[in-house]
């Protein structure tokens, strides 16, 4: 096993472990920070698919954008939100355990199905074995030609989402 593959599996392990922690942690701030590791590792894995530009976008948008927004969202709300598990009766605890077991069961079932799907040889008929690097110039070229319409539309969408989110989050003036 070369260093190259070792790094890949390291990223993979880190991604899954931190994602799991983010999901089961009882403290919201901790889970968001753990999510930082997850998104970072995803970017690392994307580098191994030779999609450099995609990896950079992942870092900039997820790590730089979405996480900050998430943190802001949490900071703006009250302190006691951070404590996920408040004081609960025995019934509520039993219900939440049942909830988790069911959720985990369904998720594991889906994973089994997906694993069967992905270990099937069916993919071989479609994909080729040779990996090709994607030069960043051709990404830019495609962005400005074939994908020009979605590129323009997404700018419109971002403007809309920005205005909408700002409007929703804004506090009403009381003097109206």
């Amino acid at each position: 096993m070369s260093v190259y593959t070792l790094i890949f599996y390291f990223f993979g392990l880190m991604m899954l472990a931190s994602a799991l922690y983010a999901v089961i942690s009882t403290n919201l701030v901790r889970s968001v920070f753990s999510l930082f590791l997850t998104f970072f590792s995803v970017a690392g894995i994307l580098v191994f698919t030779r999609a450099d530009y995609l990896a950079i976008s992942q870092l900039m948008i997820y790590v730089g954008g979405i996480l900050v927004v998430l943190l802001f969202g949490i900071m703006l709300s009250d302190k006691n939100v951070l404590e996920l598990v408040g004081r609960k009766g025995r019934k509520a605890i039993a219900a939440s355990v049942l909830n988790r077991v069911l959720g985990a069961g369904l998720a594991l079932l889906l994973f089994a199905v997906l694993a069967c799907v992905f270990l099937d040889d069916g993919w071989k008929s479609v994909v080729s074995e040779s990996q090709q690097a994607e030069p960043i110039q051709s990404t830019g070229f495609m962005m400005m030609t074939t994908y020009l319409l979605p590129f323009e539309m997404i700018s419109l969408l971002l403007l809309m989402a920005l205005i909408g989110a700002a409007y929703i989050a804004r506090k009403p003036k009381h003097n109206r």
């Binding site: 979605p150 539309m153 419109l156 969408l157 809309m160 989402a161 909408g164 989110a165 929703i168």
Partner: peptide, 30 residues
């Protein structure tokens, strides 16, 4: 865009655009 799209990227983009606009309109009275 959604009704004219013939590319999976455009379908996804159109649907997200409509969905996000719908969330905003529903949340207008939030």
């Amino acid at each position: 865009i959604m009704s004219m799209s013939s590319h999976l990227l455009m379908i996804f983009l159109g649907m997200e655009m409509v969905s996000i606009a719908s969330y905003i309109l529903v949340a207008y009275m939030a």
